[in-house]
Amino acid sequence: MRRRLTQLFIITCALGLSGCASTQWELEPWVKPYERSNLADPIMSMSRNPIALAYIKHVFESREGARGADGAAGGGCGCN
């Protein structure tokens, strides 16, 4: 499991870095601001109800050994 986690992390970092590199030199933003109405819909928000989300994550963390990287972090879509 630990090995699989490390492999996943390396692959994800490599993809991320290659994405940054290519965006800096080659790519243009491919979703224009006027095309983001669907993304701006509240049902697309990962934490549209923060008070309930914090609570249910607490419920899981109290009963599970794992912690962190639970999807709470992260931004929006630059929609507003």
Binding site: K57, E61, A72, G78
Partner: peptide
């Protein structure tokens, strides 16, 4: 103590959620 560790995890999580509930740059 069932949630002793989880209390601290929740403390940090709450802060994180409250500070990020609206997304970045807005």
């Amino acid at each position: 103590r069932e949630a002793a560790v989880a209390v601290t995890k929740r403390v940090i999580l709450i802060a994180l959620l409250i500070c990020h509930s609206g997304g970045a740059a807005v």
